[in-house]
Computed example of a mutant assay.
Amino acid sequence: MATIRAPGLPAGSRPAGSRVNRWLGHRTAKPTGFVLALLPFAWLVWAAFANQLGANPAEALIRSLGDWTIRFLVLVLLITPLRTVTGWVALARLRRMVGLFVFFYACMHLLAYAWFDMEFSVPAIVDDVIKRPFILVGFLGWLLLLALAATSFNRAIRALGARRWQVLHRAVYGIAGLAVLHFFWMRSGKNDFAEVAVYATIFAALLGWRLWRRLARPRPV
């Protein structure tokens, strides 16, 4: 039987999506992604010890870890749209790992705050959470991330059932909203909202895409 190829492709060539899927499906893809995801944390640790974080290294470390939390949150929410639009179906292999890195950077952000700002004083932390709305919002986001991380494994999916698991993990959009609000209130003291607006726009676009896909599905007659 003759081989059927896509119009415009030279004989023997493969679509770019096939090559990307082959690379993403390779056994080295996950370890490579793991190392790349750890690089920002490794750089921040090195910069802290090398005194490269500026005049207020504690604040720089806390805020940088928060920035990387929200960046990885963007990445994990981008995976499904990218997979759908480009046909890179093998991206799904990396979604759980990227999601767990969101939780990892959020934990490091919380740890740095508890350590450098509060000196691990539980009463001081509780008082700060109650008094400052942006700390409360950030802590609520972390609690939701904890729930998602704890149920991100196959055993939890089987225990919850696929439908309930999917409903629970849609909370990631609520986490995105809390992250933007946390970021907004933190920057409000300096009237610096440019970066907040960028993340808010990205999250709104991703949520809009998901809603559009849901509404565009053909309904059973």
Rank of each mutant, 00 (worst) to 15 (best):
F104T: 12
D117F: 11
V221M: 09
H109E: 05
A2K: 12
S121E: 13
L207F: 15
A197G: 04
R170H: 14
T84V: 15
T84Q: 14
L9C: 00
L38P: 01
A176I: 02
V35I: 14
V126P: 00
A2P: 15
I202T: 01
F103W: 15
S18H: 11
G66V: 00
F193G: 02
L211K: 01
F134W: 12
A47G: 04
A58F: 06
A124W: 08
A204W: 03
G12M: 07
N56F: 11
S64G: 10
S188M: 03
R158I: 10
N154L: 01
V126Q: 02
T28G: 02
F49W: 14
L44K: 03
F116T: 02
V196Y: 06
V172W: 01
W185H: 06
V76M: 11
Y173A: 06
R14T: 10
Y113H: 08
L181C: 07
W88I: 06
C107E: 07
N56H: 13
T28K: 04
A179L: 13
A2T: 10
A16P: 05
S121I: 04
L100E: 03
V85H: 09
S188A: 12
T201L: 15
L91G: 06
A58E: 15
I135K: 04
G87L: 07
F34D: 06
V20N: 04
Q52T: 02
A205D: 04
P133D: 04
T80H: 04
D128H: 09
R71D: 09
V198A: 04
R27G: 13
A149Q: 05
Y113W: 14
R27E: 08
W115H: 13
G174C: 07
I157F: 03
F104A: 15
R132W: 09
P218N: 00
